[in-house]
């Protein structure tokens, strides 16, 4: 009898905890609400298809990051996190979310390079685009979104190829259906479930 009472109490506490978690999540407001400040930039995706940024993604929740494919350390971590978020979003049945990575190294990152970068990581291109384009257009996006990407040390290989790397911002940005920035995360260290929860707060 005593054991039955304890079980009932545990069940009630568990049920109340779930309710608190649910309502807290629903009521949570995302801290930032800033217009993206970019309009009608023509870019190309990994298949060389024209994408108007950000207009092509209007009406959809957008998760955006900036990378360059010659980056051996930080950018692959960011891309991997974007991929994990995409997989979790799909698993939880959340629709209307697009994933975009824009290269801040458009001179080297041609559409075919972006495709190669995505293919070797088994990226699901269904709602994931890598974008490149005219350096002027890319620069305008970087400036408006406060992304820094500064070419740094140059290394020369035995064959004489010159290699350079960037010192750069490490960020994933969550943008709502109206093109407003709603949250920002450290790209290479993003908490996957926290980002997914924020996407859920924005809703379909």
């Amino acid at each position: 009898m005593k054991s039955k009472n304890i079980h009932t109490r545990i069940s009630i506490i568990f049920f109340i905890s779930i309710l608190i978690t649910f309502f807290y999540g629903c009521g949570k407001k995302l801290p930032e609400d800033i217009p993206i400040g970019v309009k009608d930039i023509v870019l190309l995706n990994q298949d060389s298809s024209r994408i108007i940024f950000p207009d092509s993604f209007k009406g959809k929740t957008l998760l955006l990051s900036f990378i360059y494919t010659n980056c051996p350390d930080i950018c692959p971590m960011t891309t991997h996190n974007m991929q994990l978020i995409q997989q979790q979003v799909k698993k939880e049945g959340i629709d209307n979310v697009e994933f975009v990575e824009i290269s801040f190294d458009p001179l080297r990152d041609t559409p075919s390079k972006l495709k190669e970068f995505g293919d070797i990581r088994d990226i699901d291109y269904n709602n994931f685009n890598f974008l490149t384009g005219n350096p002027v257009g890319i620069k305008s996006i970087l400036n408006n979104m406060n992304i820094l990407a500064l070419p740094g040390d140059t290394t020369e290989t035995k064959s004489g190829s010159k290699i350079y790397f960037f010192t750069h911002t490490d960020r994933i940005t969550l943008i709502d259906k109206n093109g407003r920035i709603r949250n920002e995360y450290r790209g290479s260290k993003a908490n996957i479930q926290a980002v997914v929860n924020d996407i859920k707060i924005l809703g379909d």
Binding site: P72, D73, I74, L148, L150, G152, D153, T155, F165, T167, H168, T169, D170, S188
Partner: peptide, 10 residues
């Protein structure tokens, strides 16, 4: 991590 910017050094 240099003031929020990621930099690689040999």
């Amino acid at each position: 991590n240099k003031n929020g910017l990621m930099e690689m050094k040999e």
